[in-house]
Design a protein around this nucleic acid. Sequence first.
DNA 1: AGATTGACAGACA
DNA 2: CTGTCTGCCAATC
Length: 116
Amino acid sequence: MSTPESFNERVYEVVKRIPRGLVATYGQVAALAGNHRNARFVGYALHVNPEPGMIPCHRVVFRDGSLAPGFAFGGPEEQRVLLEGEGVAFTPPVKCQKNAGAEGWLVDLSRCQWQD
DNA sequence: AGATTGACAGACA
DNA sequence: CTGTCTGCCAATC
């Protein structure tokens, strides 16, 4: 009710609701915003980022737990520091991890994935 | 004003 | 198991 706002605004609301120390995936945010298919729209919403500093895009990660390489505010390395500073559990760069979004550093979704 | 892209994710072959 | 394709909405060219 009284929320005819586009998914875009919906995404901002969800992302801003992510508690400190936890992270959410694009799919989860998109799911809370309406449909998990909007995952690509979630990234777009954060891309416009009409309210910088207000939307913790660093708390939004891929389904694999990796981040957006090159699109983070200052680099995936900075993101790891921020999340780690918030108390988010990270997995060390495993050699067998071909998923090296943030230099092999993946967020431990098993522990820190945000759940409403 | 129309076509294409876009920080993804899931389903299918 | 890997690779490819589609689906969704809005913004941009």
